[in-house]
Design a protein around this nucleic acid. Structure first.
Lengths: 193, 193
DNA sequence: TAAAAACTGTGACATAGATCACATTCATTT
DNA sequence: AAATGAATGTGATCTATGTCACAGTTTTTA
């Protein structure tokens, strides 16, 4: 059950089996069925989650009722609302399973303990967050400098698996356009060049 | 010279004077005059920078020649291109002083050493990057869910000092609109509500 | 297996913001 | 102090994307 997590962590840092055995005790497994929620707006995000199997999305709903997707989390990715998790404030995000999923959850207390007891994990999360920041900065600059079509093409190239597993209106929401616009982009791409 | 840095670090984590005395030896001071560059597109970002005094901006230039500002860095903030700094790849960013500035620079080697020797600094940078990620995620969701005017109002409220110290066409670029659009937003705000 | 819900496509029209062009004011440099 | 460049404002027009409305298809649920 924890092999995949161990492998992913070891891809980034070196930890001993003893250290990982300790880490294991701090996580709790959870199955989440399609269309069920790990977190809903207004709640506090009490877990950070590793996705062993399945697919999650985190999104906000704006004043007009439109959804905006912050992140898809596939197998091997982490999910959660960092701000709410760290501060204990209520979250503005919803986290929903898009497929039947198997998760490993860790609470703030356990997470603090893990980072404190095993400095390699402090390092691991620093690197994880660092890579996430780099990717988020690129996505932000991309929304300023490229058209919706270019962003779609890029996603198609970098994460073809996401496109295949996620309904198109959610892809549109991730790209920052309406489903109608994405639909037109796709039909243009199919006919035109 | 290092007092401000020490204070900022101590706001987040606890370090002893001995630890900080060691850290000091790894930074090199640099003065950068207005309109001079710390980093230019195509170079490798060999320093991460603490701003003691002054103001930097980091920005990219897209295919059409338009500038897009990723970050302003005021006194007490950090700047640099994380991706280039970490990987040694060439950068797509330019970092320019908008005022005569005083900086503290640290190379990748020294930074690695600092994080390795003093785990408290690993923790410090993890928290720094974490907060940056939270802010960047918010900015990204904001560009999807709010109008240019709302984003301008928010910036005005959260960072009035930036607005006062930075030319309006750069504010526009940070918000993801043209200078003409920001100009019209401002005149509407002045007359209208 | 029937009904309901979710998903996708497409036409007609509306709009926020971009683009281009020019004028004015303000700041730097020599 | 003059001259150059930087910054800002504003009108006219254009365009990518949004909005609304309806229809067809696929998937889920009872």
């Amino acid at each position: 059950m924890f092999d995949f997590l161990q492998k992913k962590v070891n891809d980034t840092i070196s930890i001993t089996n003893e250290e990982f055995d300790y880490a294991k005790t701090l996580f709790q497994p959870k199955k989440l069925r399609k269309r069920r929620f790990l977190l809903e707006e207004g709640e506090t995000c009490i877990y950070t989650t590793f996705v062993e199997k399945g697919l999650l999305r985190s999104y906000t709903i704006d004043d007009k009722g439109n959804e905006h997707i912050l992140q898809f989390a596939l197998e091997g990715w982490w999910s959660g609302d960092l701000y709410s998790f760290l501060t204990g404030e209520t979250s503005e995000y919803n986290i929903e399973a898009l497929e039947d999923s198997e998760l490993l959850l860790i609470t703030k207390e356990s997470w603090d303990q893990l980072l404190h007891e095993i400095p390699a994990f402090e390092r691991y999360f620093r690197i994880l967050i660092q890579n996430n920041l780099i990717a988020t900065q690129r996505r932000l600059m991309g929304t300023f400098s490229t058209t919706a079509e270019e962003r779609y093409q890029k996603l198609l190239k970098e994460f073809p698996d996401i496109i295949q597993r996620v309904p198109l209106h959610m892809i549109a929401s991730y790209l920052g356009v309406t489903r109608e616009t994405l639909s037109r982009i796709r039909s243009q791409m199919a006919s035109g060049s």
